[in-house]
Write a protein that binds this DNA or RNA. Sequence first.
RNA 1: UCCUCGGUAGCUCAAUUGGCAGAGCGGUCGGCUGUUAACCGAUUGGUUGUAGGUUCAAGUCCUACCCGAGGAGCCA
Length: 445
Amino acid sequence: MTAIIQIQDISAHVGETVTIQGWLHLKTGKGKLQFLRVRDGTGVVQAVVFRKDVPPEVFEAAKRLTQESSLIITGAVREDERAPGMPGGYELSVSDLQVVQLADEYPITPKEHGVEFLQDNRHLWIRSSRQWAIMRVRATVIRAIRDWLDDHGFVNIDTPILTPAAGEGTTTLFEVDYFGEPTYLAQTGQLYNEANIYSLGKVYCFGPTFRAEKSKTRRHLTEFWMVEPEIAFCDLDDLMKVEEEFVSFVVQRTLVERAAELNLLERDTSALEQVTPPFPRISYDEALEKLGAMREKTDSPQERELLEIEWGSDFGSPHETELTKLYDKPVFVYGYPTACKAFYMEPWPGRPEVSKSVDLLAPEGYGEIIGGSERISDPDLLEQRIREHNLPAEAFSWYVDLRRYGSVPHSGFGLGVERTVAWITGTAHIRETSSFPRMLNRVYP
RNA sequence: UCCUCGGUAGCUCAAUUGGCAGAGCGGUCGGCUGUUAACCGAUUGGUUGUAGGUUCAAGUCCUACCCGAGGAGCCA
């Protein structure tokens, strides 16, 4: 009985005879020679079966293997620069092979497939090398998020998913029947975190959030993961410093730990290497000026129309994309008009029409990955805003209550995991950054 | 909800003016001792999204519907 090893550790076993358990990813037969590309979840290795090296029934079994058949192979590890795989450069000279299950004809071939077909087969697509690499990057991003927050005094205190009222209006909420009462799947944990900071100072929640937006774009899921830090005694400037340190750490950690996966994904990492503090900061007003200048410069009437925006409106995707093209790092845009942001944001001192809000826009057109703000700390102003937004006062009475017992300036933000992973991996569509993405018209599988 | 594009073999696509529904890949069988999405030969494969309509004749034209993709709005 030889030792069972993981393919990712194969370089430590050169010259040894080992056993690998996995699946057949690809096979090329050459008569008396069979090349099996085997993956085990940690990597991919080429196993070579020579007719003269194995019993006839083993060679016959190797020849008949179908794509995705599960198998256990034993052989000597050899260094060979011709060997493909992950990490690659090593191969197994097979001495024994046991077929666990001969797979049925596998629908996903190494050739091209359409989006609908791949999504219908997401349960199988997840095995493909690109998807494998993205999921490994995602896991590292999540680990880095937790490590940074845990190491900087934040306490993880998760917030409920079933909630009685809206965070930001009721139009984009999924309703759930709660013993006859309507409740909603949470679209943010922020309001609860604002309570939690008065116990723990710096907190974060991390979990799935739900938005019933009928959005059909490459940046939207109806279920996505969001990490939401919230900090007591923190104003907007402090918040931006936290965000840039946090995001830079996540990117740099991933570059180091998932270099091989990013290479497999053919991600050009030179832009990511520049993601270090400080990030450029521009105000909403400055952003409008820049967009205006761009509109002047362009000859295309179409683009001119796309870039059109009046003071008081939120940016659309074209605006965000054009703005981020001006920088090689993520860029902060702060001080959005009060009218286009949520009710709980602190007004700018001396400019009530402007809020102390800040979005972080990722480069290369990946758009908004963070939305954050300083929150209103005065109970009377908050009550006034709740009235102005026609929100049910009784549902928010506990929230206003927080401002009556030692209210302090506080701020927080939410970072979308899937958008961040899409940016870091260079993935065109957010659907590939979630194992089983939930989208408009898509809840299967 | 709106705009644009699309739906033909298991998959990716082609089919000229309305005139016999085709190719590659996959599968199957055979060959090959260094393949990298191998190669060579043979073979298998169809309710052209659905329902109507026009026509001698419809994948192709018309109507309605269904499904999908990209985008807008909204947002992380």
